[in-house]
Design a protein around this nucleic acid. Structure first.
Lengths: 156, 156, 156, 156
DNA sequence: TTTT
DNA sequence: TTTT
């Protein structure tokens, strides 16, 4: 349950390879940034100006493992997720970082060849990351039994 | 896994009370229509014209039960789901119906009072429909053990 | 103004080349279908089953011209738009067709080579379809002055 | 044109009344925060925990004026927009703030009565804010002629 | 830091 | 009718 809706939909390119950490509790987390660019005409100069926005993406468990395995700098991805703002201290100053915690990801191609052949969608619910289901879930949350989605074998 | 993205986001009002069926296999399904209205200025007359679009919504299991219990004609809801077109025969003619299969629902208020007090979000993954979790899941898919989302007790 | 929200977000592949018509009033309209595929595990057989959904896309004016020029069978596109159900008579029977009227399109690559090089976004508001703005708008709605979006030269 | 997609969809409640500024160039800008709450079950305690996320909203021109006129602390709104991260200096430290720049808003009701009667949608393109169209646009960008959307008098 |  |  939750009050309200918190949804982000992005298509952009990775600025660098993902940074992936394997936590002590068995969970995997991936961090990377993707860029979206909007261009507009400057009122005064009449010139086209590109404005690039960088989005911090966080993926957990199965999605993080897919990112680790398949995503590289420059790749194009569709990310669906939610906004989350974290605060942290540095030099006695509280700082805030807003991230997009992804729960759905589709790889949209890269320049390494075979762009469309890799166009697949992953969600944080079903753990169909190509390495086999149980393996997938196990590495995402080691002490969680892989019975998380009996209902996703129904087409609705 | 899936190739592509199929997502619908609607906010509209129910034209009638939901029709709810309890299937033999224990599943519950709710059907209702919601209206969204767009107004535009007619080029010739200069008059404002309202154009109302009706959307056929289908909800399964826990969401259907929430709809049965709480949704009435006129209520405003947020629905997130996917498009699905079904075909059926009638008088030897194949007909098509496009529906929105909801996987997320938020009630946005009604005119019966208590609008905001009821503003709650439901998803087809967690079965938090107010009647208790196990009960909820049981009625949605009778022979499915209620272990569907050990991971939703993590805030990410 | 409009009451409610009516939004569709799709990523899929064209089943055929777009059908493009140039209307007498100067407007261009493009029609094509895109497929999204979801796969699920059949409860009884345990087999993976692919379920493909076909979406009827309609694009107007500038977007239609971009489609005419750049989209081909098999191409992958991101489409954002709204649902619209039309009714029409045939043999005395009223039939309904639900379409997605696109107002935003991003080409996500194809198999003809240069996938990412063509990854550009178009909207029904700015008419930046690569052939020059005024030209674009003129063909989209011949008797409409190209002053439609002075505000889109601001980056917010 | 733009490369990629940058879209945010929120439904939440205002934490305070909007702060509205009327700039020297005639533009109006509104800032406010809305909260979305997600609840999850803590693994260890088994308790339900509410996690509230605050989103910084920025609205310009017509939307800002609608916010100034109609939105109050506690009100529920639907916001569609895009993410934008700004940086600013303070005490020699660069700080970042991520905001949602809204381009669509629907008021979903309040506790002051008349919830549904006020359920209307506004966009940053058409300036239909109830005070009359030209007035609306004029205050949003004083030196911009009100010819911005001849095409929005077509229902597609 | 990406991409067009 | 596409795609993986």
């Amino acid at each position: 349950m939750s009050a309200g809706v918190n949804k982000v939909i992005l298509i952009g390119n990775l600025g660098k390879d993902p940074e992936v950490r394997h936590l002590d509790n068995g969970a995997t987390v991936a961090n990377f940034s993707i860029a979206t660019t909007e261009s507009y005409k400057d009122r005064n100069t009449g010139q086209r100006v590109d404005q690039t926005e960088w989005h911090n993406i966080v993926l957990w468990r199965g999605l993080a493992e897919v990112a680790e395995k398949y995503l590289k700098k420059g790749d194009s991805v569709f990310i669906e997720g939610k906004l989350r703002t974290r605060s942290w201290e540095k030099d006695g100053v509280t700082r805030y970082t807003t991230e997009v915690v992804g729960d759905q990801m589709t790889m949209l191609g890269n320049k390494r060849g075979g762009s469309d052949d890799n166009n697949q969608d992953y969600s944080s619910n079903n753990n169909d990351s190509g390495m086999g289901r149980s393996q997938q879930t196990a590495s995402a949350a080691s002490n969680t039994p892989d019975t998380d989605s009996e209902m996703d074998d129904l087409p609705f």
